[in-house]
């Protein structure tokens, strides 16, 4: 079965995009760190998107509260934040990240790959019936913890 991309290629690309968008969106420098266990980081919150139409799988961003709050503070340039502000900024970050992932995967092809509206939820979310195949752990430059995980369904054609 032809795969869209190899796991290693997708891993490199996700890493590049995640760090680039964090820097450009909010001036946050994410540094890769060694994973600390097999499960999601002890996440205060999760924001995730589900790919469809030409790419499958779910991309989850886990982070402690400090990271999401800092992201919102930097983007909105205010300390006066509501929980809705934090959630909306996190969703927009993953929206932008997801778009850049697809553009890099399909730079010329006219495949209509899309992704769902980002969902923000409390605690660590993991999609049912999908396996974790890529996990990227980061520390923010102010000791925030972030994890990006890509899940694929069994029999995935993506990787």
């Amino acid at each position: 079965m032809d795969r869209l991309i190899s796991r290693d290629q997708l891993c490199v690309m996700l890493d590049q995009v995640a760090r680039e968008i964090a820097r450009r969106e909010a001036g946050i420098c994410l540094s890769p760190v060694e994973p600390d266990g097999d499960g999601p980081v002890e996440a205060a919150c999760t924001v995730y998107i589900t790919f469809e139409h030409g790419m499958d799988g779910t991309l989850c961003l886990y982070a402690n509260g400090a990271m999401f709050v800092r992201l919102a503070r930097e983007v909105m340039q205010t300390d006066d934040l509501t929980p809705q502000d934090v959630a909306d900024v996190a969703k927009e970050y993953l929206n932008v990240l997801g778009g850049h992932v697809l553009i890099r995967l399909f730079p010329e092809a006219k495949r209509p790959a899309r992704f769902s509206v980002p969902v923000f939820c409390q605690g660590p979310y993991a999609p049912q019936s999908e396996r974790r195949c890529i996990v990227l752990d980061y520390a923010g430059d102010k000791a925030e913890q972030v994890q990006l995980a890509y899940y694929t369904p069994m029999g995935s054609r993506t990787i």
């Binding site: 932008v96 990240l97 850049h100 495949r111 899309r114």
Partner: peptide
């Protein structure tokens, strides 16, 4: 303006 736009 978009985060996702293909050439077409």
């Amino acid at each position: 303006v978009s985060s996702l736009a293909y050439d077409d």
